[in-house]
Design a protein around this nucleic acid. Structure first.
Lengths: 233, 233
DNA sequence: GTTTTTTCCTAACCATTGGTTATAAGATTA
DNA sequence: TAATCTTATAACCAATGGTTAGGAAAAAAC
């Protein structure tokens, strides 16, 4: 088929105003920044939209409108919608890790810390239902990870190891104990089960936590008690 | 905008051969059947495709090709892709219920039955990863259910009640015991956690079960032991 | 100060999707 | 034979993720 020669419409007005003043930076710095600013605007818009809507209903064009650029511009900074989601997913995960670290630094029993961390984890995932799947339910064994995905995966692995360590300590297991891996896996099942049960719920995080916190706490207890029984039998 | 008058291309050849011979039925019965047969063909094709690919990658056009009809024909029998998935999802769920019933009829302890049912459940969900979400992770509280979805929901609720009963019996709880609901919820978290952890894995069901069956069994044990501890404290 | 290069961005495009509609072939009925 | 009813399709639609030719402005080179 003959491709129709493309004809341009009359030159349209360009963007009416620059995105931001860029303060008193040098001309060179401002130039570099213009691109970075667009990237940031896209990330911010995507972050805002991805936490409210789900992956499918959030469109590139909607994100672009929110970021005040054309949807084609997004592909200048992110190879695909998927990569954009991953890029958005990174910082919150880091934030969660920091909150975990804060809890770990407290002077409390491993069991107590595990419970606090578990609560934090569930609240985090429920508040970001679109992303929890990207974070935790994607196959860790996947090897076809690009750079961005790689760092995300690393962050996730660190989080998991941290949690696994806490489970081990709570149960009084040695790191090299064969049952340690199995036990932390099982504890994760519990956590992921909670999250994925309410994944598609339309209730807000607050309502869910208000209503189900006691059940979640009970679940944490059940997990630990069951695991204790499992390793001591 | 003025809608361009639609012009039809020259009359194309119709479907070259009828779908099936319809045997020696009367003319009237054959006529009625032709439609039913198309419906069945669509259902069969969709069922085949939905178990291998996931919801997004299975397109209406692909299903149509597999069912040897136009993709528009599908909309004659199913209002939307979603409804088609639900229609496909129904029978297997019923089959699972029957397998559950078979286990329930055995002469064994409630604990033993619970374990068998749990295994069955996990294997079922892992074998139908596209659909498990439709089955079990959609919000039960949703009220905007149409007829088809309604029956599906009922089937799901029956399954849940059956499992909950088994959990109750295993723990020796009365039906009206306030903790019964909480306990079965927690047990479900465990089951759903297992399934959703491997939801996006690319390994086959066989490989997953081969590798992780012991861990799954351990998880069931942990759940029951933890719940025992929970109700007896 | 003028030209060249580089950076950043967009309009128009593409293929594909879920879904709708005008139209028609074939069977049934009158 | 004519009217109707059933079953189906080709062509259409709006929207989506993604690509590309081209251009405006800033920076660099002269």
């Amino acid at each position: 088929m003959v491709r129709k020669k493309r004809e341009r419409a009359q030159s349209p007005p360009r963007r009416s105003e620059p995105r931001a003043s860029s303060g008193g930076r040098s001309a060179a710095a401002r130039n570099v920044l213009r691109g970075v600013e667009t990237r940031e605007a896209i990330l911010a818009a995507a972050a805002r939209l991805f936490v409210s809507g789900d992956y499918r209903t959030v469109t590139m064009r909607r994100i672009a409108r929110e970021a005040a650029c054309s949807h084609a511009a997004i592909f200048l900074y992110f190879a695909s919608k998927d990569e954009l989601l991953r890029a958005v997913a990174g910082p919150p995960l880091e934030e969660l890790r920091e909150r975990f670290a804060l809890i770990l630094d407290r002077r409390a029993s491993a069991g107590r810390k595990l419970r606090l961390v578990s609560r934090e984890f569930v609240a985090f995932c429920l508040a970001r239902r679109t992303m929890y799947r990207v974070y935790f339910a994607s196959n860790a064994a996947r090897v076809d990870v690009r750079q961005e995905a790689g760092t995300l995966n690393e962050a996730r692995i660190r989080l998991f190891e941290l949690l696994a360590g806490l489970v081990r300590e709570t149960l009084g297991l040695q790191e090299k104990d064969r049952r340690a891996l199995q036990c932390s896996r099982i504890y994760f099942y519990m956590l992921l089960g909670i999250v994925s049960t309410y994944d598609q719920s339309e209730e807000t995080t607050e309502v869910l936590l208000e209503r189900l916190s006691p059940t979640f706490d009970a679940a944490f207890d059940v997990g630990v008690a069951g695991l204790r029984n499992f390793v001591n039998r």
